[in-house]
Design a protein around this nucleic acid. Structure first.
Length: 469
RNA sequence: GCCGGGGUGACAGAGCGGCUAAUGUGACCGACUGCAGAUCGGUUUCCAGAGGGUUCGACUCCCUCCCCCGGCACCA
């Protein structure tokens, strides 16, 4: 099934067709490592991790590039307030970022590109823009992009230049020719880290690194650019202006994707509002898979409210799916080759694989995909109740494996050593003997003891079964 | 003011021009059961922000209004 992607550029869903065969070049705006990685980052990067995983699943060869803004105003602020070096700050917070991303199962980034590793490309690009008359040198040695020289300015965000309110949030710098101009190269101020350039010592502006990085890795054009919606304007607009003015190739990016924000009780999450959720804090309260499930249980474009109540709900919901996977895994080890429920189970598996693909192909609708998992889960549980055979259960297990790989959840249950499994079967059988004798005290003691080591017993009408938790 | 996204049943949140408005959570009832847990079935919800229009028929398309969220020039 062909994938439809909502393209922010056209504000429509479009069929996804990469520029070159089945190769997909994908770039996502990374973070500025100057503070703790928070749930907003988590939502964005889990979202694009799923995009990359699904594209990979569909047979595309995905190259996923993410930048790291390792020099920027906020890092310099942090240097001032802590007396530490910029690299030191970056290393700490980027290290922490990698840790939490790994905990959340974000595994698909191929290259992290640090802005300061691309100074030559940045300088070259700025020079090119100046030569073509798109950029000008200010008297302090900074270089600005002249937005009036780029006819496509405002196209991505649908903004009319005249309608914008300069200075609505950030004070306009007086050195600019036009309020909308943005800095490409920032002249060094005393005490600031700086690199050499034809205009003297300084550092790159925020927008230029992304185009320098992607042009080096992907060339003048690539398939997919992602980021949170708040970056749409001016950041992504600036990228288009830089790249297209520099290379003359249009469009710079074929598909623009934007993720919705994380809210807290309806408010944007901010340190200053006191509702800030670092991922680390969330990980202390919830398992990583629960957090990831929570994040994929909405469509990436929509906002999500991050409150403990909703996390608790996600935890309960997710447990339902995980329980089914445990049942399938436990059941297939003891089930006979075939059973009464096989036909319906096989049909349900085929349908689930199909429906899941349809849901995900519709602009990566993970919410809908998760609904498919719940439907499937019920069908599987029913099939187990009516007696499913090993072959059909193995198939179901593989299906859950596929779903789990794409969404980054439902890690397969731990596999025990064969001898341990036999011992468990023996213990469970002994307990059954006790139950037949109505020696419930002994039976319960065995159940509690097994529970303490993570093995759950469930008495069902077809006998007892055990699973690992 | 301008641009973008929204307003759906107790809550969260999908799809679709027309079968009982998906899925989950919560609550309640039932089945199963020594107890527990898990699971299964059922109920909890039908004119979907307000008002018009198009249509045989709209929650779904169009218009107006109200409200919420994001952006408006270095926030994922």
């Amino acid at each position: 099934m062909a994938i439809q992607v909502y393209n922010s550029l056209s504000r429509r869903k479009e069929e996804f067709v990469p520029l070159q065969g089945n190769r997909v070049s994908m770039f996502v705006c990374g973070l500025t490592p100057q503070d703790e990685t928070h749930m907003g980052h988590a939502k964005t990067y889990v979202g694009f991790d799923v995009v990359a995983r699904f594209l990979h699943h569909k047979g595309y060869h995905v190259f996923y590039l993410q930048n790291v803004t390792d020099i920027e105003d906020r890092i310099i602020d942090k240097m001032r307030s802590t007396g530490r070096g910029w690299k030191d700050i970056v290393n700490q917070y980027f290290g922490e970022y990698l840790e939490v991303m790994s905990a959340l199962g974000c595994t698909s980034v191929d290259v992290y590109a640090f802005a300061t590793d691309y100074i030559p490309e940045i300088v070259e690009q700025i020079q090119g823009l100046m030569e073509k008359g798109h950029a000008y040198l200010a008297d302090d040695g900074s270089v600005y992009y002249d937005t009036t020289t780029f006819s496509g300015w405002g196209r991505l965000s649908g903004q009319k230049v005249e309608a914008l309110r300069p200075g609505a949030r950030v004070a306009v710098e007086e050195r600019k020719r036009h309020p909308g101009d943005f800095v490409l190269w920032r002249a060094q101020k005393p005490g600031e880290p700086a690199w050499d350039s034809p205009w003297g010592k300084g550092r790159p502006g925020w927008h230029i690194e992304d185009t320098a990085i992607t042009i080096r890795h992907f060339g003048p054009q690539y398939d997919l650019h992602g980021g949170a919606t708040e970056l749409l304007f001016p950041h992504h607009e600036a990228e288009i202006a830089q790249a297209e003015a520099y290379t003359g190739v249009t469009p710079f990016v074929k598909y623009w994707m934007h993720t919705g924000m994380v809210m807290v009780k309806g408010e944007e999450m901010h340190k200053s509002l006191g509702n800030f959720w670092p991922v680390k804090a969330a990980l202390k309260l919830y398992e990583p898979e629960v957090i990831r499930f929570f994040l994929v249980n909405v469509q990436y474009r929509g906002p999500i409210d991050f409150t403990p109540d909703l996390l608790d709900e996600a935890k309960r919901s997710y447990e339902r799916l995980r329980e089914t996977v445990r049942s399938v895994d436990a059941e297939r080890r003891r089930a006979p080759e075939s059973g009464k429920g096989d036909r319906t189970l096989k049909a349900a598996t085929t349908k689930a694989l199909d429906d899941f693909d349809v849901a995900m192909s519709d602009d990566f609708n993970t919410r809908e995909a998760v609904a498919v998992l719940f439907d499937y889960s019920r069908a599987v549980n029913k099939a187990i109740d009516s007696g499913a055979g090993r072959t059909a259960l193995d198939e179901a297990m593989r299906a859950f494996g596929t779903f789990g790989e794409i969404l980054g959840i439902l890690a397969p249950p731990a596999v025990g050593a064969d001898t341990i499994d036999r011992l468990l079967d023996l213990i469970v059988a002994l307990r059954e003997d006790a139950r037949k004798r109505k020696d419930f005290a002994a039976a319960d003691r065995i159940r509690d003891a097994l529970g303490a080591v993570g093995v759950v017993l469930e008495d069902t009408r077809d006998g007892v079964r055990w699973k690992r938790r």
